[in-house]
Design a protein around this nucleic acid. Sequence first.
DNA 1: GTGTTCACG
DNA 2: GACGTACGTGAACACC
Length: 924
Amino acid sequence: MTTPPYKHLYLVDGSGYIFRAYFAIPPRSTADGRPVNATFGFTNMLIKLLRDSDADGIAVIFDKSGKTFRNEIYPEYKAHRPEAPEDLVPQFAAIREATKAFNLPCIEMEGYEADDLIATYARQAKEAGIEVTVVSSDKDLMQLVDGGIAMLDPMKDKTIGPDEVMEKFGVAPEKVIDVQALAGDSTDNVPGVPGIGIKTAAQLINEYGDLESLLERAGEIKQNKRREKLIENAELARVSKKLVTLERYAPVTEGIEGFALRQPEPETLRAFLELYEFRSLLRRLSDQLGDEVPAEATPVPAAPGEANYELVQDLAALERWVAAAQKRGVLAVDTETTSLDAVAAELVGVSLSTEAGKACYVPLAHKGDAPADGGLDLEGGGAEAPKQIPLDQAIAALKPLLEDPGVLKVGQNIKYDMLIFARQGIDVAPIDDTMLLSYVVEGGLHGHGMDDLAQIHLDYQTIKFKDVAGSGKNQVTFDHVPLEKALDYAAEDADITLRLHQVLKPRLVADRLTTVYETIERPLVPVLAAMELTGIKVDRDTLRRMSNDFATRIGELEVAIHKLAGRPFTIGSPKQLGEILFDEMSLPGGKKGKSGAYATGADILQGLAAQGHDLPARVLDWRQLAKLKSTYTDALQTQINEETGRVHTSYSQAVASTGRLSSNDPNLQNIPIRTEEGRKIRTAFVAEKGHVLLSVDYSQIELRLTAEIAEVEALKQAFHDGQDIHAITAAQVFGIPVEGMDPMTRRKAKAINFGIIYGISAFGLAQNLGIPQGEARDYIAAYFERYPGIRGYMDRTKALAGEQGFVTTLFGRKIHVPGIKDKNPARRSFSERAAINAPIQGTAADIIKRAMIRVPPALDKAGLKARMLLQVHDELLFEVPEGEVEETSAVVREVMENACAPALELSVPLVADAGTGANWAEAH
DNA sequence: GTGTTCACG
DNA sequence: GACGTACGTGAACACC
């Protein structure tokens, strides 16, 4: 054999990849309806491989349909494989076309699986001294891994070597087939030995060396069941081993010398990309394709990025755009600023789009070019600033348009732009938000940032902010971006937003989600904007004093901890701490997690502390103080806005899959309360002079909704009677009178009640209560016995989620649960629990959102001046003039308790409790 | 950029 | 019997 002229051969498992890509990538199709998601993924992967790897030899290997030699050994092999989904079938041919379009060899062979051909070529290449990488994540190929052969998981971009194989199978690669022979494989219908899984198999192989030795000496095994099974099924194990062993000497006809990398023919490649309408890939490969993207691939209107955008630098031009928008009635708007913090940001420019492919950018505060030498230049303008419309004139021209009730303003995360405009005296309305449309229609399926949405719905890769403004220490604010670049980027954003609106808005009706969007998400936007703009007053001195106090105590603890350890180390490093505790001090219970590090979480340290060890106890104290200082008392001081003296969080309305809000920069939804020490931080959140803080929160809302949704009559009755719900649960489940109940009994019932909301598991409950799993199992059984409605709800919900891929709240919000069909049982169970929790958490989120929308007008109508400041999932915080507390409290409670009406009437009452004080600690 | 830890509901 | 576990978040930090 001649030595092939390359060094590193990549063998791509084409059939394996396409299955994974099909399930991992959301459905997409060409204009005439041909499904292409897996083909797109495959093509993308090839481009990435060609671009990023050192491959100078590549072959793509496929399964050939039909029987293989394994069916002669064991007719049932792969007999239970379900048919491929119908929208995957046509893609099998398409990825072979893709392979050929890139001028790569396409290998398949009657009677052999792709895995056997890969094994054969890998062996041949290795013998010829060529490095081999098998591109696949199929565990069946892991047996090939050795010094010269590695695997690459193309979707996770993770290299799999002997260590990763060890992690997966618990044995070295050459023993993998022995483990597989014992454990079997239900998806391929490899029988294995009943009752033995990978864990047990690995343990046995490690103990006895290999399968044959194990089977010969099976009589020595102590566990009765295991010994019998092994003896009884020895032959089955041997057959299984034959099934899982890859054929390394398949009679292949193509030689590896033919796998040297060749350049693709530009015409062939282009024809392929056009046929499947992979326009973003066409664009990306345009340099390789020799010239510009051909005209026939350019749809009408022009693809984003290829459209002709207008730079608007005088008032007359801006007025033409205003008139065009008035005429159309729809306008996409986007602002460019100097900061992601809308309350601190300076307006730099505005972009507008009135129809797809037609957009402009109006620069308003761009500086001249930065000096090339990077020298000191405080104005940032070495050159004169470019021609721009004066800000006040532009605002005056835009205001009537942005406030025109007859013109719909469309934005991507328009709350941000509304805040920027609000600070310029413009009250933007009416609005639509493409981010929220996507959130309502496809929540749970993917992120809702513009880059994601452009890729998914428009097959377009947006220009990245980094590409125009740089990154890291070279990053500049947008006012320093040259106008040409700024135009491309900013106008594109408005263009894309308008196009996304055209795609997503009709989906509301089609998917019956109009009500959720129109009555919850859209009206909430201005409410959140007002809360963010208001902010909450934070007392810097209180925080500073606390930081100083923490610093002293942290320092003292550090000295003590280092002394106990016998040497200094970084206490904040879990890795170093683990080594100190379990290697150097040899404390018991050192357990390594999957990353190979010792676990040092609070539960572990508490266990050690309880055994009388001082160091872990001190580390717990240190961690608490370090957390409070770095995350709260230090960080919050830096978040106080210079101008307002208040802290302005930002609420994300499209992040949490259940419909909840999230809070960031800073997160004001996780300010400490559970420990005395942490709770003090809340005293720094204060009311303006002459005001107090009012906190109103829903009592047990999720448990009430669980009783409602799962129709648990006994719990509903308890809520009607206003009883202590956890005590009642304990009484009914454990049969103990409420009078004189042991607090531990009530605690257990409380844990079960919470567990139910989370999609209970015996493991989780046991963990939470620190009891054996068996005991937890008994409690759950007793609970289900007493409240059978709960089990019915759980089973129904799992089934429904499986059938339709989503669950719904009482208000019709859809929450997608993509992992519900996962064949990995751990991931599937995870999704099942999420599916059980989502309608409960999501309905609670819907309810408080409805309340938030109604509170401001209700206060207004009552002539009250209170301002809503924060939302913390089941709590609303207000700043109230001292004389209006009682009235405000009554109005807010009224709105919150009746927030379901008139859309829905619950059979359990909702109760909202109020508290007031000079600061948040007192009010809550 | 990822994983661990820990703050909240 | 095994998978690896309670649901939903965001931030800081260490470490690669």
